[in-house]
Write a protein that binds this DNA or RNA. Sequence first.
DNA 1: CTGGGGAGGGGGCCC
DNA 2: CGGGCCCCCTCCCCA
Length: 288
Amino acid sequence: MDENFRRLQSNEKHQSDTMEQPLDLSLSNTKMPFTIEYLTSNIPHQKRKPFFSNQQLPLTLVENKPSYFHSKLTEHVVPNASSPSVRTATSALEIVNGGHGIKNPLFDCATEALQIKYANSAKHDAEFVCGLCTKTFKLQRLLNRHLKNHSQLKRYLCTFCGKGFNDTFDLKRHTRTHTGVRPFKCQHCEKAFTQRCSLESHQRKVHGLNHTYGYKTRRNKLYVCEDCGHTSTDPTNHYEHIKIFHPYSPLIHRYYDKRQFKFDSNSSLSMKSTSDRSFLSDDDHHLQ
DNA sequence: CTGGGGAGGGGGCCC
DNA sequence: CGGGCCCCCTCCCCA
């Protein structure tokens, strides 16, 4: 058993500041110099942190800890021409989470190396078994997602601090620690929280309120604007807010995605099918 | 010990 | 059917 496998099995926490030697994933254990080039510079958008434009910034990725990130990567990012000729260096970095995150260019190679080298998973009695921790799953995709938890390399990176996450929702949740967005406000005091569970815990412990939700019952969806902190329980209101105050938000073009907007049957927006192109703005048409 | 911040991991729906 | 996305529960850490 080699050192990497031992660390994976023991599920050691990643400490980026103390861990000098990255996992030997053979395809990604090298420093990869990237240069951020701003191919466009006049795209207006909300800015909360210092923002650098029209200049080249050195960005060296070591594991999933960039040496430097700025707060908004909304323009194209291309690898340095002098980058090593590995596969991930030949494609542009992908922006996620409304400009607050990027896809880790090292992730795919690392995943493949992990799965090929260590994940001797098997199917027993109609269940998929993880070869690293023996946990079982009823679906292959649940096992696949679980396998990523064993990797030290994360799929998405925060552009504020470089911390990595496997889920965009985890990244979005983490981003609130940088932006200060606290969508969940207590109705009985001035406190506000980044997570719903924190609010419910506060209300239970401080105000003695016990919610009546059953175990794992989904709460009413709260639409949160991660750019300014605006919240609404009404998807139409949320959509109008985005359209008016953040017209360059990628959410504008995802009104038909029910993971983003769950319009009820009475909503004027829900009456607009995706085939009703007259509903789209000029920009919407442009992006179709 | 308590309350709050933050994150890990799995369930479930939608694309 | 796999991946993306949102959500919940739970745990750990810290003041």
